[in-house]
Amino acid sequence: MQKKTLAVALAALFALPAVAQAEVTIYGFMAASVESAKATGNGDAAKEYKRTTRVNSDNSRIGFKGSEDLGNGLKAVWQVENSLSNYDNGAGNVWAGRNSFVGLSDATLGTIVLGRFDSAYKRLTDTGQDLMVNTSAGNQGAKNIFSRGEDRYTNSISYTSQNWNGLVASASYKADEADGNNNRWSVAAQYTLEGLKVGLGYDQQKNVAAADTTFAAVKDLKKNEFYKLSASYKIADTLLIAGYEWARGDAKVGSDLKQDDWTVGVQQNFGKASVRLSYSALGKLDGAPSADDYKASQWVLGGTYSLSKTVLAYAYATKIDNKAKANVKFQVNQLDNGAGNDPQAIGAGLRVNF
């Protein structure tokens, strides 16, 4: 009897992990590229980067996610996502440093999550404008040429609706746990109709320190505001993209700041291959002395080839033209270039999705 009881107990013990992990999905990708890059042009040799060869991890990541059915259309959801940048001697790997959260999802009412999560502004205004995302030739982000109001909120709560005949809406709130004076929030919506996608969003943050503002002019701000409209249209094997963003910074001292940015591009597919071209620009910084010196632009030319359903080869060339006081950087694999330097890169890589 004791042997039978022990056998049953051991069987149950070894069965428990299998049950607990039944709803866990492991996902992500490993990528690497080799490129030639430089950042020169401002005349300060101490802040210029002469041409160098680099091997990059291109934003590689691994994630774990799952759900549990609670009945009546309700389920618990969770996710832990991590950067893998250290494998090419990079830095910045933090456990759960990417989108990581826990929440509830209802089949009718939508999904609410708590934790670290991309803002509603970032998620729903992305309709495909970043044609070479996760490479040095990417163009979106707070320190990049376009979509400078996007962010991944920490200490946040986010609600996303279900799809209502092509319309999805979302709202995000980032709590300031230090003194409560610089909370951040955003609202956004995305509409899809056949090959057309349109995104619209608003993001606001109060009491922004000079080190954190996306504006190149260094000053503390009472409030940052971003407005963004984006669209993409796919017809047959052609994808057309466009986006416009307007930003306002209410200064604590001196003139308020205003600046816009925009992008246009096209992707043409040829079976397993594609060619991608985009041009983006950052406008003058109204309210700052020498406003035109804060302008910047970026050309991107890229191509991809699908070796299988999960393996993608890619190549790219890009150049950022920073005016005297602009300091736009690569999306990933950034060079710490000073203002006025012009980063440029040409490279090729391989990505394996899992």
Rank of each mutant, 00 (worst) to 15 (best):
D179P: 08
L167E: 13
A137Y: 09
S105V: 04
V133W: 00
L193S: 11
S147I: 00
A178K: 13
R184V: 04
R116T: 06
G180H: 11
F117P: 00
N163M: 06
V94D: 07
G195L: 06
G141W: 00
Q140M: 11
G180W: 08
L131H: 04
A142E: 09
G115W: 05
N139V: 14
D88N: 12
N93W: 05
N181Y: 04
A171Y: 01
E194V: 06
N144F: 09
A210R: 07
Y87F: 15
N86D: 13
S186Y: 03
W164C: 05
G115E: 03
D151G: 03
T135P: 04
L109F: 10
G138Q: 03
F117E: 15
G97C: 06
T154Y: 07
W185F: 14
V208F: 05
N134R: 02
L114I: 06
L109A: 15
S161T: 00
N86F: 07
N139E: 09
E177W: 10
N99D: 12
E194W: 10
D118P: 02
G201E: 14
G199Y: 07
Q162K: 14
V113S: 09
N163H: 11
Y159F: 08
G201R: 07
T125M: 00
S136V: 08
N99G: 02
V208S: 02
Y159T: 10
N155S: 09
N181G: 14
T160C: 04
Q129P: 01
Y191D: 04
L109V: 10
N139M: 15
K197Q: 09
A120K: 07
I157S: 09
S105Y: 01
A210M: 02
G92F: 04
A171P: 00
A188G: 09
Q190W: 09
L167P: 14
W185L: 15
Q190A: 08
A171V: 15
V102H: 05
R184A: 15
W95I: 12
T192R: 14
L124C: 10
F117L: 01
G195Y: 04
A169S: 14
N165R: 12
Q204P: 00
A188I: 06
A189Q: 07
L167G: 07
A188T: 08
D88M: 12
L196H: 10
S147R: 09
Q190S: 11
A175W: 14
L193R: 07
N99C: 02
A178I: 13
S186K: 10
A209M: 08
L104T: 08
A209D: 06
A211V: 12
D176H: 10
T108H: 11
T192V: 12
R184D: 03
K206F: 12
N86S: 14
D179T: 12
R148Y: 00
R98M: 03
A209C: 00
G110E: 02
A189K: 13
D176E: 04
V94F: 01
Y173E: 07
S156F: 02
V102D: 08
V187F: 09
A107R: 11
G128P: 06
Q162L: 09
